[in-house]
């Protein structure tokens, strides 16, 4: 068994031969993203099919007056605030790109005339922190949005809009949460032993997931918030 173990250790940092030349994990994450596309397509389609079918308010873009009590419910979606949170999430993708580049280029020495900004760009910790914090900020915006909606009378049970809206954006939020935890674990590795260029793939896979979750939000923001 010793030769076996030695062989395993010796191979730990070599590249495996694969048919496509890509790492297995990279192929798997792409197939996973394909599956996720169908998941969000089903959620978004259901939201769109149910748009305008709610029998009671509050409604996303229209004012609704309760015929029995005369209570007035204003359009509930807050587009300025959600635009801000969308911007935050998009910026997190930028930070993710910089984090990946920092890991990839770790072994390259900084040029002699490197300034303050060049040194910041080379810090994977900084950009992973930025991505995490921006992702968490987006989640904070979503928590604020959900609580204020509940205060305005929109719950999961209230109407079809509530059911489909909270389920769709909740699923997206859950994906962002998983992403933040994933990035946090990369950060933990970075503090423990330092991310090396040989870890590029590990960061790349997390980045692919993160960008995908961003792209889904662009679709949700456009279809749910912007189009009336």
């Amino acid at each position: 068994m010793t030769s076996h173990a030695a062989a395993a250790e010796g191979h730990a940092h070599e590249h495996h031969y694969t048919t496509t030349g890509l790492d297995n994990r990279k192929v798997a994450i792409w197939s996973f993203i394909g599956s996720e596309c169908m998941l969000f397509a089903s959620l978004i389609s259901t939201y769109l099919i149910y748009k305008g079918r709610s029998v009671v308010g509050p409604l996303p873009h229209e004012t609704w007056t309760d015929p029995s009590t005369g209570a007035v419910f204003k359009p509930i979606l807050n587009i300025p605030i959600t635009s801000a949170s969308t911007f935050v999430l998009l910026m997190s993708s930028l930070a993710m790109v910089l984090a990946l580049a920092a890991v990839e280029n770790k072994d390259k020495p900084l040029p002699a005339n490197a300034g303050w900004w060049d040194r910041q760009l080379a810090s994977s910790k900084l950009w992973l922190w930025c991505t995490c914090i921006l992702g968490a900020t987006f989640l904070g915006f979503q928590a604020f949005e959900f609580t204020s909606f509940v205060h305005e009378g929109l719950t999961l049970r209230r109407n079809l809009f509530g059911s489909s809206f909270f389920t769709l954006t909740g699923f997206h939020g859950a994906h962002v949460t998983v992403g933040v935890i994933w990035l946090g674990s990369l950060l933990a590795i970075d503090y423990k032993r330092g991310l090396r260029p040989s870890d590029t793939l590990m960061v790349d896979i997390a980045a692919l997931y993160w960008h995908f979750v961003d792209v889904v939000w662009i679709a949700i923001f456009t279809l749910v918030y912007l189009i009336k």
């Binding site: 197939s31 394909g34 996720e36 089903s42 959620l43 709610s54 999961l156 509530g162 059911s163 389920t167």
Partner: peptide
């Protein structure tokens, strides 16, 4: 890979309806 996520969503709707009182399949709610 492409078909199972659709039933996953359909099942989540039914699960949420049964356990948390959402209205995905409640005809009286539209």
């Amino acid at each position: 890979i492409l078909a199972f996520p659709v039933i996953t969503v359909a099942l989540f709707f039914l699960q949420f309806d049964r356990f948390f009182g959402t209205n995905f399949y409640t005809v009286t709610a539209g």
